[in-house]
Amino acid sequence: MTRPPGAPRRRHNLPAGVAAGLWLVVVGLPLYVLVASTFQERDAYFDHGPLSLPTEPTLDNYRRVLASDFLTYLLNTALVTAGCAALVVVLAVSVGYTVVRTLNRSSQQVFRFFLLGLAIPAQAVIIPVYLLITQLHLYDSLWAIVLPTAAFALPVSVLILSGTMRDIDEELYESMTLEGAGQLRVLLRLVLPLSRAGIATVAVFSALQAWNNFLFPLILTQSRSSRVLTLGLYDYVGEFRVDIPALLAAVVLSIVPIFVVYLFARRQLVSGLMGVGGR
Rank of each mutant, 00 (worst) to 15 (best):
V80P: 02
A78C: 08
F70K: 07
Y62S: 05
F39C: 09
T72A: 15
V89A: 15
L53P: 00
D60Y: 10
D69Y: 04
A36L: 06
S68N: 08
F70H: 08
Y62K: 03
L51V: 11
A92W: 01
V90H: 01
P57V: 09
C84L: 12
E56P: 01
R64T: 13
R64D: 14
L75I: 10
L71R: 12
A86S: 14
S94M: 01
V89T: 11
E56K: 09
P54A: 15
L87N: 03
T38V: 06
L71E: 13
L79F: 07
F46C: 08
L59C: 00
F46E: 10
D69N: 12
P57C: 09
T58R: 13
L59M: 00
L79Y: 03
Y97H: 07
D69A: 13
R64L: 15
S52R: 13
P57Y: 10
D60F: 10
D69F: 03
E56Y: 09
A44D: 12
P54H: 14
A85W: 01
A85E: 04
R63F: 13
A78D: 05
P54N: 15
F39L: 15
V90R: 02
F39T: 11
F70P: 02
V65C: 03
T77H: 01
D47C: 01
V90G: 02
G96S: 07
S68W: 08
N76Q: 05
E56C: 02
Y73K: 04
E41Q: 12
D69L: 07
L91Q: 10
L71W: 14
Q40E: 12
L87H: 03
D69K: 06
Y73R: 06
L59Q: 00
A36C: 06
T77D: 02
T81A: 08
V89K: 03
V88K: 02
C84Q: 13
Y73E: 07
R63P: 07
H48A: 14
F39W: 10
V93D: 01
D69E: 15
T72S: 15
G96H: 00
G83N: 04
D60C: 08
E41M: 11
L71Q: 12
G96T: 00
F70Q: 08
T58G: 12
V88D: 02
V90N: 04
H48Q: 13
D47M: 08
A85C: 06
Q40V: 09
T55P: 02
T55S: 11
Y45G: 00
A67H: 03
L75G: 07
T38R: 03
A82G: 14
V90W: 02
N76I: 04
T58N: 12
L53V: 09
T38N: 07
A44P: 00
Y97C: 04
F46Q: 10
N61D: 08
A86K: 05
Q40W: 02
L75A: 11
V80T: 05
A44C: 06
A86C: 14
L66R: 06
A85V: 08
N76M: 04
L91R: 04
G96P: 00
D69R: 13
T38D: 07
T38Y: 01
S94N: 00
S52K: 11
F46H: 10
Y62A: 04
V90C: 07
D69Q: 13
D60Q: 12
Y62N: 03
G83W: 03
A92I: 04
L79E: 07
T77R: 02
A36Y: 02
T38K: 03
H48G: 09
R42H: 07
P54E: 15
L66T: 08
S52M: 11
L66W: 09
